[in-house]
């Protein structure tokens, strides 16, 4: 049997030191992804540090910044009154993810740390540079319908599977990370990485560090917003394409805009160029279409995911249209 130790602590410092000093130790929160990975033989940690007892479950508004503990469950966050009122885009993104059962145990931190769902990553008899660097990419030239069209590399075309993260990157969230030397804060957009030549690294968190909370500044994007997810079935399916869109409108002119996409890259994909185009322009279908076109610059498909080159801009247009129409 593949034995592993299972340790539980309610103290952040203890959790950090337990993982920091042991190369084969890892944190476990909801476990909705990690347990699958262990069952499939993709990963085999020798020590699991259960962090479910850590005091990181608060959701509070301080100085116009929403603080979200890393151990808040996805469903608790989606149902939170402040989130519903001030960050409804995040609520929609959360509710689009997984299934109700999974959202009940999945945590905010765990959602960010989840691995890609690329089939080649999960099948240990197939090549995968993310699982086994240097073994090749099964998806290039193989089944790549679910795969990336932006920021791909020759070593990996996997996508980050989260919906929540697409909402968070659009909302300019920040990630607070604790480590041996204290806390550090990075922008959400810099948390996940592109695959490049090191697809085994999903993000910029260091060994022995732990996500402790998120911070989201309050904004005026709680009126005209939408999260549009396109998937193969109505629930419990990963995004073919998803778009988070939020607008601040003054007499139908866009003063602020946020756009991010899921299902297209190794990280939640913020559409900065499209946002820049829309800023100060009228919220018209023609402008939405032009923005969608700009957003697609540099996209590259791999055969079975060619359809994303059409579905992605269409979904951007749809998300913006619905966001605008909200009263």
């Amino acid at each position: 049997m593949i034995n592993f130790q299972f340790l539980r602590t309610s103290i952040v410092k203890t959790a950090l030191s337990l993982v920091a000093k042991d190369p084969k130790a890892t944190f476990i929160a909801g476990g909705t992804n990690l347990v699958d990975l262990m069952k499939r033989g993709v990963t085999a940690p020798e020590k699991l540090i259960d962090i479910n007892q850590l005091p990181l479950k608060q959701i509070e508004l301080k100085n116009n910044i929403l603080h979200i503990g890393a151990m808040v469950s996805n469903s608790a966050l989606a149902e939170n009154a402040i989130v519903k009122e001030k960050f409804p885009l995040l609520m929609l993104a959360l509710q689009s993810g997984a299934s109700a059962q999974l959202r009940n145990v999945a945590t905010v931190g765990g959602n960010m740390m989840q691995r890609t769902r690329c089939g080649y990553f999960y099948d240990t008899t197939m090549p995968c540079n993310k699982r086994q660097p240097g073994s090749g990419c099964g998806a290039i030239g193989g089944y790549n319908r679910m795969h990336a069209i932006f920021g791909t590399s020759e070593s990996c075309i996997a996508v980050h599977p989260s919906d929540m993260c697409v909402g968070l990157v659009a909302l300019d969230a920040q990630v607070v990370i604790a480590g041996a030397k204290g806390e550090r804060k990075i922008n959400f957009i810099d948390f996940h990485r592109l695959a490049g030549t090191t697809p085994e690294k999903d993000n910029n968190i260091q060994k022995g560090e732990l996500i402790v909370r998120l911070e989201i500044p309050v904004n005026n994007l709680n009126k005209n917003f939408h999260y549009q997810k396109v998937r193969d079935r109505s629930s419990y399916a990963f995004a073919l394409i998803s778009v988070a869109a939020a607008l601040e409108l003054k007499d139908d002119v866009i003063s602020t805009v946020r756009l991010a996409m899921g299902g297209v890259a190794h990280k939640p994909w913020r559409l900065v160029a499209a946002e820049n185009f829309l800023k100060g322009k009228a919220a018209t279908l023609a402008n939405f279409e032009a923005a969608a076109k700009i957003a697609m610059e540099g996209a590259k498909a791999f055969g079975e995911n060619d359809f994303k080159l059409k579905m992605a801009p269409n979904t951007i247009i749809e998300a913006l249209t619905v966001a605008k129409a909200k009263a």
Partner: peptide, 8 residues
């Protein structure tokens, strides 16, 4: 759906 191709 006109834009996304989703069938319900």
């Amino acid at each position: 759906h006109n834009l996304t191709g989703v069938v319900k």
